[in-house]
Simulated assay, not measured.
Amino acid sequence: MMLRRAIINSSQILKPRLGVLTRQPRCLQSSDDDDRTTVKVLNMEIEAGLMVDSYSQVGFRLNNGMSVIGPIALFPKTVLSWRVRSSQDINEDSLSLFYLLEPRLDILVIGVGDQGCRVDTRIIRFMKNKGVSLEILPTVSACTTFNFLNQERRYVAAALIPPVAISVNEDDLVQAERRRKKLYQSTEDDEVF
């Protein structure tokens, strides 16, 4: 059997756009030629509902093309503004929407902003007493987790605070330069007519 590797560049790993590697079970394959690994980009499947395509210090871009400014409460088919400024503002009142829902959420993914931001342990106990399971992560990881659980058709919601610290790598710079050139070229083409 031949071993094949999937090469993923660093920009694909750092961004919340989520892909899933799948492999067809051996018993369903007809020959060695069909032994392939495929990549499925979850954010491209509109029927899966809303997912986070990207984030910045000011907000989020969703897979339907909408940009949302500030912290958000995100559900599979709905996005709402969430009135918190930082992880210190997360309290019983700010989370009331999530524990009052019927039917109950399978899980609430909280994106606290940057690595190292915390949620008060009393709030965690309070939500557990209300029957809501929590996953508390930096926003970068929370976006990916929400996308994955939403794709699995779990009854999930996300409470996301935009991160302050954004890391930019070389691939991000190259992609930004390509977009700039494409935009510049399209404006030149418009001037010709």
Rank of each mutant, 00 (worst) to 15 (best):
V112A: 02
G111H: 02
R122G: 06
A142K: 00
Y155R: 13
R154I: 00
D53E: 15
N91C: 06
S31D: 08
Q151T: 11
N63Q: 14
A157G: 04
I107T: 09
S81Y: 14
P162R: 04
D114C: 02
I110N: 05
C143I: 00
I166E: 02
A165D: 13
T78R: 12
D34T: 09
R125H: 12
T37V: 12
L74R: 00
A73S: 14
V164Q: 12
R125N: 12
I124W: 12
D34Q: 10
Q115N: 12
E45Q: 13
R154P: 05
V52E: 05
L108I: 03
R153Q: 12
V79A: 09
P103V: 00
I136E: 00
V58L: 14
T37R: 10
S30N: 14
F146Q: 04
L101Q: 11
K128E: 10
Q115F: 14
A159M: 02
A73Q: 11
N129Q: 11
A142T: 01
W82P: 01
I161E: 04
G131D: 00
R153Y: 15
S30A: 13
F98P: 02
A159S: 05
V41R: 13
S141K: 10
D53A: 07
Y99H: 08
S67F: 15
M66E: 15
R36Y: 13
I107S: 05
T121E: 14
R118P: 02
V140K: 12
D35Q: 09
N129P: 03
E47Y: 15
F98V: 06
L74H: 03
L50S: 06
K40S: 15
Y155A: 09
R122H: 11
N63L: 04
A48R: 15
L28W: 15
G131V: 03
A158P: 03
V52S: 04
S31M: 05
Y55A: 03
G59V: 02
V132E: 04
A73K: 07
D93I: 07
S87E: 02
E47G: 13
M127W: 06
